[in-house]
């Protein structure tokens, strides 16, 4: 983890309220898929860092790509960044997906809403990635995903793919257990992750979920960002793991979903 001033290489709007931002980052070579960065506002009244997942990394050019949705004032400010601008960032933060254990396995990468970006980076390190992507209506990043693997699409309004949520798409696709993937990597809203964890549990398949929580330090010191865990955590010896540094990726069984 390092804090540095990163240079903006490129930024474009790719969908309604959704932006793709490329930054030159000194730590790009160390990045693992599923890790994230902290972005600091240039307005000192916005004190806390904004955690954003690393969508893709180019180790050759030392750049990272972030894809984010405008959710408030901080992300609105970032959407105004132009090539040549600088921004304070800290990274890479977190554990990332367990790529090495599943490199040559068939992994279904399940994303909902603004949880899709980190799955793209994971797909570039896996040999047989398949995506399941859930959108409300307008899709984004679909061309990028398709370039890397097959994509099952679900939209809530039925405008593309299966009408419903991403779990509906998965159930429809994998009707025979023999066709099921070897594992799931997922990022998205909590209800989606909970449903997927249950589905994977029923099938006896490994499932890894990337969780979100409000953060203050972003580096493991403040205990602001915990998730309830099934077992006693290593740091505080209670049932709370820090999402920022013990996660954000957890094996589904580690999480207390109640």
């Amino acid at each position: 983890m390092r804090k540095e001033r990163a240079g903006v290489v490129f930024q474009e709007q790719i969908a309604d309220h959704i932006y793709s931002l490329s930054l030159k980052a000194g730590f790009a070579k160390e990045v693992k898929p599923g890790q994230f960065v902290l972005l600091y506002s240039s307005d000192r009244s916005r004190l806390l860092p904004r955690p954003i997942s690393i969508c893709q990394v180019s180790r050759e050019t030392g750049t990272i790509r972030l894809v984010y949705r405008i959710a408030g004032e901080g992300t609105r400010e970032f959407s105004g960044l132009r090539p040549g601008d600088g921004i304070d960032i800290l990274g890479p933060v977190g554990n990332g997906f367990p790529i090495a254990d599943f490199k040559d396995k068939k992994v279904l990468l399940v994303g909902g809403g603004i949880g899709i970006p980190p799955l793209l980076g994971a797909a570039y390190e896996l040999e047989h990635p398949v995506f399941a992507a859930g959108y409300r209506s307008e899709t984004y990043l679909l061309d990028d995903l398709s370039a890397r693997g097959r994509v099952l699409v679900a939209t809530e309004d039925g405008s593309l793919g299966v009408r419903g949520n991403v779990l509906d798409a998965i159930r429809q696709e994998y009707q025979k257990p023999s066709e099921l993937p070897d594992a799931f990597f997922a990022c998205g809203p909590l209800p989606m992750l909970r449903a997927l964890a249950e589905f994977a549990g029923e099938q006896g398949l490994p499932c890894y979920v990337s969780l979100e929580e409000r953060m203050a330090c972003g580096i493991g010191a403040c205990l602001g960002c915990i998730t309830k865990t099934a077992g006693v955590d290593g740091h505080s010896k209670v049932h709370n793991a820090r999402i920022c540094t013990d996660g954000p990726v957890f094996r589904a069984e580690e999480v207390d979903w109640s």
Binding site: R44, R214, C222, V238
Partner: peptide, 23 residues
Amino acid sequence: WPGNPVPRVAETASGMLNAIGLQ
């Protein structure tokens, strides 16, 4: 001590609120 449920932190103008609960 397990501390409080989340959300435990929130940003405010030039400050923040925390209710970690002494985990």
